[in-house]
């Protein structure tokens, strides 16, 4: 069973994403900020990280710099053009950008595509 780490400072979003992905048979772990995310990576060993790009605490570019061997998909209310402008989408392991508010079917489709199912 594949594990997905959902990182978002908003509990309702974390819970919603967890519900959706669990319904598809994934194991879902959650983190509420960058530091928390880095800690959880060690214990949960996720196959994919869904990462909000606007969170209090450790800036997201600092977070992604420390993750080199796990695929990351950004989730954000801002547009991808804005994220690019902030120089956020440069790393190779950043594989997708999910626009919030997302469509449930779309989210599932993207995750399955990344995880190769």
């Amino acid at each position: 069973m594949k594990t997905i780490l959902v990182v978002d400072d908003e509990e309702d979003i974390r819970e919603s994403v967890k519900l959706i992905l669990e319904s598809r048979g994934y194991n879902v772990e959650m983190a509420e900020n960058g530091d928390d995310c880095l800690k959880k990576i060690l214990s949960a060993k996720p196959d994919l990280i869904l990462l909000d790009i606007m969170m209090p605490g450790l800036p997201v570019d600092e977070v992604v710099k420390q993750i080199t061997d796990i695929n990351i998909a950004f989730m954000s209310v801002v547009r991808i053009s804005e994220a690019r402008k902030r120089g956020l989408c440069t790393q190779d392991n950043i594989v997708d950008f999910i626009q919030k508010p997302f469509d449930v079917g779309d989210l599932i489709g993207r995750v399955e595509l990344i995880l190769g199912e």
Binding site: E10, D12, I13, S16, F102, D103
Partner: peptide, 11 residues
């Protein structure tokens, strides 16, 4: 707030 709201509604 639209994000979780829409997700839950769709589910």
């Amino acid at each position: 707030p639209m994000t979780p709201m829409k997700a839950q509604l769709q589910m």
